[in-house]
Nucleic acid binder design. Sequence first.
RNA 1: GGGCUCGUAGCUCAGUCAGGCAGAGCGUCUGGCUUUUAACCAGACGGCCUAGGGUUCAAAUCCCUACGAGCCCGCCA
Length: 530
Amino acid sequence: MTEITHWADVMAEEILRSGKKHLVATGITPSGHIHIGNMREVVTADATYRALLDQGADAEIIYVADTYDPLRKVYPFLDESFAPHVGKPISEIPCPCGECTSYAEHFLKPFYKALDRLGIHPKIYRADEMYKQGMYVESIKTALLNRDKIAHILQEHSGKEVTADWSPFNPICNKCARLTTTKVTGFDIEAETVNYVCSCGDNGTVSMTGGGKLTWRVDWPARWGVLGVTVEPFGKDHASKGGSYDTGKAISEEIYGYKAPYPVVYEWIMLGTKGAMSSSSGVVVAISDMLEVLPPEILRYLIIRTKPEKHIRFDPSLPLLNLVDEYEKLSANNEGPSYNRRLKELSHAAGICHTDIPFRHMITIYQVAHGDLDRVMKIVERSGYSTKNEKCILELAENVGKWLDMYAPDMVKFSVKEEIPVQAATLNATQRSFLQALSEEIDAANELSGEDYHNLVYSSQDKNSSLNARMGRIMGIDAEELEVRTTEMFKAIYLAVLGQQSGPKAGWFLSSMEKEFLAKRFKEAASYRP
RNA sequence: GGGCUCGUAGCUCAGUCAGGCAGAGCGUCUGGCUUUUAACCAGACGGCCUAGGGUUCAAAUCCCUACGAGCCCGCCA
């Protein structure tokens, strides 16, 4: 088996050929909930950034929030009161919940929190502030003066006619505050102003400092030069021929005289079988939701383990547990191929909690405890796990609770019935005698571990066991005549406790409950008649 | 119509850049600890690397063509 190099390291090596100093940029428009598809962008950027640092680069990572973009439409999650705001920059629109300083901020706040949890700490820029501080003034002048050349580039690369009144700059109307409805009528390089007419009937003059923004296809390359971006991941939508990277590269190099950044193109994340994730189709899992279900490093691992140009199939229901298992196994093993260790390093998020309780076990614990966190801790203790990292254990329990609530299939769900379930009526004579005998054995015993319970259940088919002997006595037959199939005995247990035919691995499951409760329940079930 | 990316075991994917015996995990099956229903361990099964052609001593890997999937070319990142 040959040694495998992680994609981020391969990329870093290539990037370093063009110099030692690098600025990795990422940018997302906070016009709606930022979902895990968007997360791929920042995690990809961060992996590249970490790989660059590891190879000795002088690298930085930044995140540009495109807060000066206009609101495109009234999205499904907005109410009609937002209709008048369509076309205004999202930094200038009120917050949907009324508590944030702007619409943009409303969606950025949870995203910043998510970044932090994922261990990604970029220097943050807000586009509206950059414009308002005049950082783009020179770029705007250059763009206005080279309007024809830019139009030519756009036409050449995208094959699309550019209209006669097209301008690389979109002024913000002084009257209606929109930037999608204005047309540039002239500009003054000395005074740094632009004249416009607006479809609302207004006409006037705005400053190049905060009075409008460059159109996206020009804004992007302008930003590269202004900030000194050398590496940038972006979705494949920008990557095709005639797309915005194509035109951006040409504009950057021909108009701004700045070498376009190294492109890292990433594919979409597909949600289960529902297809690509996108805000407009409503097929979305918000990062903030996912972080309530999964530890951040597993979310990173999801992205890190797959090369950017491959699409990722993400299914938050049962298949999610495979991902979790895989990561837990990886995480517990410090040996193994260097590639595995690299995966782990790149998945590492800062300040994570460690508990050795697997996610799958917690699914059982949590449900036995009926979601009660005090009871969760008691069960953890009874099951022999360390209770030292209480905070982390509870965090895991909360993750599991959310998962059960939002994504878990019925198959893994169960509830320990407070009263004996009516399904116990279907128990046959052998099963009843087994439960009665089991109840007596439990009563007689001191502490029982998962393995003890496990052994106990299996001893039912052993002619020399005390459990088997009890069963014979209860049924009033000879040991020789007693036929015990353990499968049936397991069913009896699940029926008595859960009211269903199957359940979590029995020994461990039983040990998570109080033995007095079990003794009582099994005794009741043995003689239950509805 | 033009272009980009992907196609490898039942499933999720490494391996393709830099050609050298077809790989991992999960699932399945078998076996083990007197004994494992969703916590164990070991082993096995599993493949026309989407198809066809080309280059080469040698192709999953490079080149061409086709098919399938997703996406872009509408200044909706």
